[in-house]
Amino acid sequence: MPRPSVPACQVVFLDAGTLPCGLPFDQYLDAPLLSQLAYQAHERTAPAEVAARVAQAEVVVTNKVRLGAELLAQAPRLKRICIAAAGMDNVDLQAARSLGITVHNVPDYGSDSVAEHVLATLLALCRHLATYSAAATDGRWSASPHFCWHGPRILPVGGSTLGIVGRGRIGQATARLAQGLGMRVLFAQRPGREAAEDERPLDDLLAQCDAISLHVPLTPDTRGLIDTRRLALMKPDAVLINTGRGALVDPHALVAALRAQRLAGAAIDVLEVEPPPPDHPLLAPGTPNLLLTPHVAWASEQAQQRLAARLAEQVAQHLRERATQVQAQQPGAA
């Protein structure tokens, strides 16, 4: 029996520039269903453009574009939101639920990529790779009376203790890699639960560990989690790594701790506002042993392709469900 005619499904990706590899719809849709897909990919969408771009959409794909209750109410055809990320804090979930809009995220596309970034930046900080690389070419090595050039103290990684705040997929992936380097791994005690053998209350964890890595979501309870008081609890030769959410760390307090040498280093991949304004405190020159990267811990080639595939699969699922519903409404359907 021929497939019943189905009107085109309007799908819009509001910030497709965040995922350069594109969505492989042809891997998940047969030709008849693929012909029903009307897909628009926008490099970026400014706040003033969102309402117009979602007004006729059945499916919206977004990475970081915010979809609040007022915007959702202006999209009467919207049935599904696909978030191109693990976090869901950019969508008003309660409003979506009340409007019958399903919201889907992609929770585990980049755990290994983020974990690898954590270990890479940890090694870079502890071994002062930026400083030593510069010394090799700026004349300091050539001027050395010895075969090598000695600069900042190189801290050991193997045998040191890594404290992980957040015991989800990424935290556990980070733990596995760290243990492979010979590190001892401890976790922050989860609120409301009895501490496991390898868990410590957060303040105790900060005081005991040589490195701290943050992997918790941003909530009212975790906003500003690492502030002046908690930075003061850390060892002066410890390092802090944040690949979670920017607002977990007070940037002013972090800069002060690094400049006062109360902390040996920090690797920060996320900021509370992205892209950051030029006057953001972590962009100011002169902060020692700060390794700042532009939110790329997740972005290995494999992780990008896995994320794109999951998004394409979610859109394909909507088209299949939609076609089934239309078919069931045809005259003579059982």
Rank of each mutant, 00 (worst) to 15 (best):
D138S: 05
K235A: 12
M234R: 11
I154Q: 07
D203W: 13
L282N: 02
P217F: 05
I83L: 11
H42S: 10
S213R: 11
E301V: 03
Q10M: 13
D237F: 06
K64F: 04
R53P: 09
V157Y: 03
A96R: 05
A299P: 14
T45C: 13
A52G: 15
G87P: 01
H318V: 02
Q302L: 10
V270C: 06
A178N: 05
V255Q: 14
H42Y: 14
Q327E: 10
S144P: 10
P331R: 14
A143G: 14
E43G: 07
V106Q: 01
A46G: 13
V255L: 03
A238G: 11
P20S: 10
R140W: 07
P145A: 07
D210W: 12
P288D: 10
L181S: 02
P285V: 12
Q40P: 11
V61K: 01
L214K: 06
A16K: 02
A48I: 13
L23R: 07
E197P: 03
S133M: 13
G110H: 03
L307T: 09
L14R: 02
N63A: 13
I170Y: 05
T45R: 08
V255C: 06
L214G: 13
T228S: 09
E321L: 00
L258M: 09
V315S: 02
V6E: 04
I212S: 04
R320H: 02
A256I: 07
A188C: 13
V61H: 00
L129A: 11
L122V: 02
L119E: 06
Q179W: 08
I81T: 12
A333P: 01
S133W: 09
A51I: 11
Q261P: 04
R176I: 15
R53Y: 01
V12C: 07
D26E: 03
A323Q: 05
N105I: 01
G151Y: 06
E197K: 05
V65R: 08
G286Y: 01
M183H: 13
